[in-house]
Structure formats: C-alpha cells, structure tokens
Nucleic acid binder design. Structure first.
Lengths: 353, 353
DNA sequence: GTTTTGCACTCTATAGAGGACAGTGCTAAA
DNA sequence: TTTAGCACTGTCCTCTATAGAGTGCAAAAC
C-alpha cells in the first residue's frame, strides 16, 4: 500500500470532491451518491463526472461502497487524509471557550478538576469523554497529617506528589489528643517528607525494629500510625487510572452496530485495557493524536475514532484526555475542543501566577 | 379504587396462581398464558380453569393483557400485592455477602466508600445503582489545615461534619513557611472548630473589620486565608448529591421502550430532580421502600421500580441508596441486596468499635 | 480528451399478503 | 365447579412485489 503518497497523485478537483463527500457524510451518516454530491459540491459537474472521480477515489482506497447501488463512504484511510490534509478546524466561539474555562476554574481541587474535564468533554462534544491519570513512577510524600475524629478514630491526610490528596480513617487502640496527633504529624513530616513512599514504608519497618529496643512511647505511636496509614490504600492499585463519562452519548450513534457492542466497550475490563494502551501510546507521542477506526489496532474500537491530547502542568505531562466517538464525528469541532480542554486543564493544574 | 382490600377477597388458589404468574413473568419477560401457567403452577388445573381465574384477577386490576391473544402481565398494583404479601425474599448466599463486605471494607474514606456502594449495587444486581448524599442542614467545621505546596500555593484541607474531607488549592500573595501555616492552622482551629460554617464565615468578616484597626500581621493572614478557603467551594452547591452507576445495565432491558427513553432518564437534569425527589421521600419514610412503576408519581419512572433503603451511622440517617430497574425485576434478590448494602455502608461509616 | 446523456442493471428498503402460532372468551358437557 | 371444544383475534414471521437510489458503461456532445 503506497498509502499517503496517493493523495498527491490526485487532482485538486478530486480532493475537493472528496472533502465535500466526507463533510456531507459526517453530517448525514448516509452513503453519498453522485447525484447528491453534484448538487452539494456546487462545482457545476454532472453526476456522471463525479461517478468517474469517485471510482478513482475508490481505487486508491479512500472510499468504499457498502454495496453496488449505495453511495460512497470514507474509509479509515479516507478519514486519515481528510483529517491530516483537508480539514479546516473551526475556531471555537467564545461562549464555548467560556464554558470550558468556567468548568475548569482553577479553584477546584485536583481530582474534581479531572472529573469535570471528563464530563465536560462528553457534554460539549456529545461523545464519550475519557481522561487518563497515569500512576507516577514514584510517589513523593509531601505532607502527612492526623486529625482526631471521634474516640479511637483518626483521619489521616496524605499529600502526595504536590497535587494529590488522600484521606483515610484509621481506628486506633487508644484515643489521641489533638496535641499528641500534632506531635506525631510533626515527627513524621520531619522524618519522611520529601521521600518516596516505598522508601518511607521500608524505613517505617526499620524504625519499628529499633523501637523494640529503646521504648519511646510517643514516637512508637507515630510510627505505628504511619504504618497503618500507608498500609493498603496509598499505592494499592499500581495500574493507571481511567475515567470515562458520557458513555450514554454513544447510544444514539447508529453505525456503532447496536447498543450491546458499545455496552461491552465500557463494561469489559479487557476493553478498558485496550483503551488504556491506546492512551499510553498517545502520551508518548506528544501533541494531539487522532486514531481512526481500525488503524488503532484494537478491534474494540472498530468503527470508533479517538481524539486525544496530553495535558501538562509545570512543564510536565500529567496525563492524556480525549474523546471516543464514531469515525464519523465532527472532527472540526472535536479537535479544538479536546485541544483547548487539555490546555485549560493544564493551566488549572499549574502552580501558576 | 378499593385497592388493597381486594387481595383479601381473592381465594388462596387465585393468589397462588397469581404468584406463580408473576414469578414466571419476572423470569421470562413474556406475557404468561393459561396453558403455560397450568403446567408451571403444578396445581392440576386445566388451562380453562386458569383462564377463569386470570379473568377475575384482571377484573380486580392485578393483571393486564397487552392484547386479546396475548398472555397476562402483572400491573403495578399486581406487583405491589406481590411484593407486599406474596414475595418470599431469598437469603443472600455467603459469597455474595462476602463480596459486599469486601467492597465496603471500612478502611476506605468516605467518598470512595459511597462511590463503591453505588457501583457495587449496580454490579451485583445488574441494574442501575443510585446513592443520595443529602447536604446536611448545617456543616460543622471540625478541622482546618494548611499545607505549603510550591511557592505561593497552599493546600487547604477542611474536615467537615466528622466525615467529609474537602481539599482545595489557593494562591497566596506571599510564600508561607510551614511553621507559619502551622500557626495559622492552630489559630483558626482554636477560633472556629466545632462551629457551623455559615457562622464561621460571618465571624471571619467581623474579624477582618477588627483587623483593620489593630494590625496583627500573622493573625490577619490567618483570617484572610480562611476567607479564601471558605470562599466558594465549601457550601457552593446546596443541592443534594446524587450518584449513579451502572446505567448501561439497563440497556438490555427490552421493555423499557428502547434506549433513548433510558438515555433521557440519566441525562436530563429534570429527570434527575425527579429521582432526587423520590429519594427524599424515601429518606423520610424510614426503612426500606419500594416504588413500583407509575405509582411513584413520576412518569419518567414509568416502567421502572426503585428499591431503596436509608443508610445510617451513629444512629443518624446519612442518606438513601438503592437501585433502579424495570418493574419486572428479581425483587427477591434485589431487596436483600439493597438492605444489606445499606447496613454495611452504615457500619463502614460508623465510628464503631 | 473530457464531460455528459441515456440506459440497463443491481441492491435495498418497504409495504402488503398470508400462514403459523399463541392465547382468549364463550358455550356446553362432565 | 371444572373441563373440553371451538371460533375468534392479534402478533409475528416469511415471502413477494415494487419503488427508489445509485451504479457502470457505451455512445454522444462539447
């Protein structure tokens, strides 16, 4: 397949017609016939001429007929050409930008910001939104804090990696006073802040050993509580996090072959893994990525396209976000939306100003 | 309509047949005919006899024929009788109980616990799970804490109402040291801990006035940061929170009249309000509640039933959880699942031991 | 040589007809 | 009171015919 070079062998007229066809199809969803295109393209060409052109386009693999007497439909390769060379992206109107900005106001905390980015993407594109939060290779403990709740219950607050805040409640043997907890917090922060969590955990075990010898009540409490605090929760799932929203938007996309296929897409664990892999690809190739239909390599995403963009703050890539929808989507709208959402999310997460 | 009294006027035999019919229909989803029921009920009655009985049941409004030559289907009133008087609830097998217990292990923090309860409900019932978290009438500030992030950025952690932890990041004019923040935290906790947030906010404004006069640098910082911290986020949405999961489960429930109706159910704001109202009803009438079809009064929930149970911890009702599914659901399985989930969620949220 | 017209051909979608099927209600017999 | 028999009714499925959309090709027009 001498793939991309083909487009250069095509005349301007062919490309123009091809573009009109793709646009028409994206709008309509029905295969486009020569007659329709003749009127639609406003080029003063008769259907017969257009039939000839379309036959050529089919030969180079940009179009496809579902059957002899249907119109033509773009292939994945066709979409590729369209997206790469023909598409003119619409600038977002200011009200849309304003909406995105409003939703991603930097006041909110990390996790709710990410949640909102996802639901906003799905909302404004009417497709499924997805955000990946890769597990950082290492987790730097920034701050640990204990707050007394009712008797025997202590709230542990961990600040990890500068952004992420984790809470959990632990049950203790005795009831600690606020000042005791204060001391314990101080001690642990002094000892462990700025270090990697796995290291911290190892150190804690060592400390516990030492404690056995010279008994220091308060410090022993501290270490024991730290152990409990770090016990299960913190690094428990090593897998990356994936966050979907707006799955129901895909329900009225007819071409995705009935509801149950798409139901599977979001329910089976394996499918999620596929999507995760795709997004991991996207995070490595920097900048906006568009995966069209089968070319993604995952047949779960057969008739789907995925438009992604990494988001970054403080010059560091934090994750990937994007949308999943039918290959026949409004790329001209979707692309700038994904783009700007990534930028705004990044800005909101940024230390900034 | 002399509604519930009717059931007493029916013979045992009628009720037994009715029960068999409902059970069959719940299993099958197809209208049940006299011939089928004759074999199914094992009562040695001919189809003709059963036809007579079914005609009676239809007269009192428990059954309904979709058309002349279809079998019978229970009405909402029929389900009501079935659920109230005829249903024998299955005890959960231990593996199911274990699964629920595992998911709701009390180690996790508040919000993730609630999230899990919802997704677990949908998972194990194969219906849509829903959890309501009513906004408490008042928010008692339990603890406020500041953690320095990078320069000019401070993480604020608020513990409210004994369970709820809120994080947000604020940008400050100057860079605070850890010990400064420590002091500020201490000061604010001393001043405001245990008080209602709206009160706190009022007090802060008053304090700011006072500050204008006698300038006390550190304390002024404290008050200003507190103001920023409480500014928008904390009580911003006064509405109750509603949490859905497993909506896609409802997609293969054929009788709910196509996908788009149910798509609406979860996407339109208005529909959510309806569900919210329903759940608010459920929280007032204590104990398990079952709303069947149209009797809920909300026609969004036309062919749906909602099974709910409030969950409580420390003797206080915290919210309502439950499932939404077709009227034709396995009440015998769903009811105990909702029941035990509510109990276990309560237990996990409890101060406990 | 390129474009258009005309025409035969192909495939789909839709509507209607007819039969199989399931189930009813009624009447008369057990 | 229950059962058997029977005519009746509505649904669902299959089959067929037809209209419509669109193609490809050959010959004519530009």
């Amino acid at each position: 397949m001498a793939s991309t070079t083909d487009s250069s062998q095509l005349s301007d007229r062919s490309l123009q017609l091809f573009k009109a066809l793709v646009e028409h199809f994206i709008e309509d969803g029905t295969p486009v016939g020569s007659r329709t295109l003749s009127k639609d393209s406003n080029m003063g060409l008769s259907p017969a001429t257009i039939r000839n052109v379309m036959a050529d386009l089919e030969d180079v693999g940009l179009l496809h007929s579902p059957h002899t007497s249907a119109g033509r439909v773009p292939t994945a390769k066709g979409y590729r050409l369209f997206v790469d060379s023909l598409l003119r992206v619409n600038a977002l109107n200011s009200s849309q930008v304003a909406k995105i900005a409003r939703e991603l106001a930097p006041e909110s905390d990390y996790s709710s910001l990410i949640l909102r980015a996802s639901s906003m993407l799905s909302d404004v594109t009417q497709l499924a939104g997805v955000v990946m939060l890769p597990r950082p290779k290492q987790s730097i403990l920034q701050h640990i804090e204990f707050v007394a709740l009712s008797s025997n219950r202590v709230l542990v607050i961990l600040v990890v990696n500068d952004r992420e805040v984790q809470n959990r409640i632990i049950n203790t043997d005795k009831t600690y006073s606020t000042s005791e907890l204060q001391k314990i917090s101080n001690y642990l922060n002094e000892l462990f802040a700025g270090r990697d969590l796995t290291q911290v955990r190892k150190s804690i075990l060592e400390e516990l050993e030492k404690m056995k010898e010279k008994v220091n009540q308060s410090m022993q409490s501290a270490i024991e509580m730290a152990q409990q605090a770090l016990d299960s929760d913190v690094t428990k799932d090593k897998s990356d996090d994936l966050l979907f929203s707006g799955q129901t938007n895909l329900m009225d996309v007819a071409e995705l072959g009935a509801a149950d296929k798409l139901k599977k897409l979001f329910e089976s664990f394996n499918q999620k893994r596929d999507i995760l892999h795709l997004l991991e690809q996207a995070i490595n190739a920097d900048g906006m990525q568009i995966f069209i239909g089968e070319e993604s390599g995952y047949d779960v995403l057969d008739k789907c396209s995925v438009v992604t963009s990494p988001y970054e703050a403080d010059g560091q890539i934090l994750g990937v976000l994007g949308v999943i929808g039918p290959t026949r989507m409004h790329y001209d709208r979707v692309i700038p939306i994904v783009d700007i959402t990534a930028k705004m999310l990044g800005a909101a997460l940024n230390s900034k100003n």
